[in-house]
Design a protein around this nucleic acid. Structure first.
Lengths: 202, 202
DNA sequence: ACCTGAACACCGTTCAAGT
DNA sequence: ACCTGAACACCGTTCAAGT
């Protein structure tokens, strides 16, 4: 197999590329945390010690880089949703999960910006990826809670996520990055709960 | 009075400046509507037919220009708050006002961005201006509703405004600029209402 | 007093040239 | 196959020079 014996240089190149990629992601994580989702890409490349072209080769779009940075966290949230669903009553599961979601997005500045730009339907493959990861798990939680009458039925899962994300975003933009949104999140969660007191008697 | 007779040229100059200023504001209104609060300033100057220095002379900061564009609307909202307060029951007044607030910010793209950056305390005179206009009126509405037990007491007026603004912002960033936030706003309003069902029995 | 526009520093993105 | 960095187009902001 010459394709294996005569390509130690290929292997070496590849490990170089892999190293660059890892460095970029690590630097990007810091940059997004420090400056939000609009952190300077050229600065990320500089701090990673690579040319700007290299950054674009690995991550053609900013969203792609953002997703790479927050990939693990998004996956962890999806898994948490499944665990909570098996464990407790629907409303409690949803509430706990939304708090975890809020906590993660609060500490991950760039992620808030990424989620905020979500449209009603997937627009590219990066968008499609995180939707496929996060939405199904969240939808199951929301629909469980709706089915048992604990949560109002006139909201979609995407709207719920947008709402919680907006709260986190509002909190961040107010300059209070460090702590969770707390009472503001409570307002949203209370608002999501189904109440009968509005039943129109006509 | 020589200071009056020998300054017809001064009068002419001033009217030039006034015209430039008006043009800038008119163009800026369109630009913010079209591109949001980050619309290109250089493009605004260009479209108004003035040099970039002229824009900076009239409006040293972007926030100053934004406030100028939305000044009337902010004042109108403050007056509406007073009228509603005199007219109906506290909760209804607050609800109606928040809907009007949401509707105005929804149609005024740049305003959402301006309000989103509000800190817990005024940071400059532009910030101070709209706070002095909007906050007192809104605070009276909120506190009325809290006093009569219709709205929970663990939120401040600023938090309420941030929350509603965040909803409008989330809605816009999701690419649905045209319609009001609707159900998302309902969730927030419901969440603000005071309910006793959570009274801890300990 | 007011306006202009060149000048500077910065960024996003692409692409020819290198290894 | 991968990387570099110059090149281009754009913007925010300032300031000397004009009227």
């Amino acid at each position: 197999m010459p394709s294996e014996t005569n390509t130690p240089s290929r292997r070496a190149r590849r490990s170089d590329a892999r190293l660059n990629r890892e460095r970029l992601v690590a630097v990007a994580r810091d940059a997004f945390t420090e400056h939000g989702q609009n952190a300077s890409l050229i600065d990320i490349a500089r701090r990673a010690g690579v040319g700007s072209g290299t950054l674009y080769r690995h991550f053609p779009t900013r969203a792609g880089l953002l997703v790479e940075v927050y990939k693990r966290g998004i996956q962890a949230l999806a898994e948490l949703a499944e665990r909570l669903r098996e464990k407790g009553p629907p409303l409690e599961a949803l509430t706990t999960w939304l708090e975890a979601f809020d906590e993660y997005t609060t500490t991950s500045r760039g992620l808030k910006g990424l989620l905020a730009t979500v449209d009603d339907e997937p627009c590219d493959d990066v968008d499609a990826w995180w939707r496929a990861t996060l939405l199904p798990a969240a939808t199951r939680l929301v629909e469980d809670a709706q089915r048992c009458g604990a949560v109002r039925r006139d909201v979609t899962t995407l709207q719920v996520l947008r709402l919680v994300n907006a709260v986190a975003l509002a909190h961040e933009q107010a300059g209070l990055d460090d702590q969770r949104a707390g009472p503001l999140l409570d307002v949203v969660v209370d608002g999501l709960r189904h109440t009968d007191e509005d039943g129109d008697p006509t």
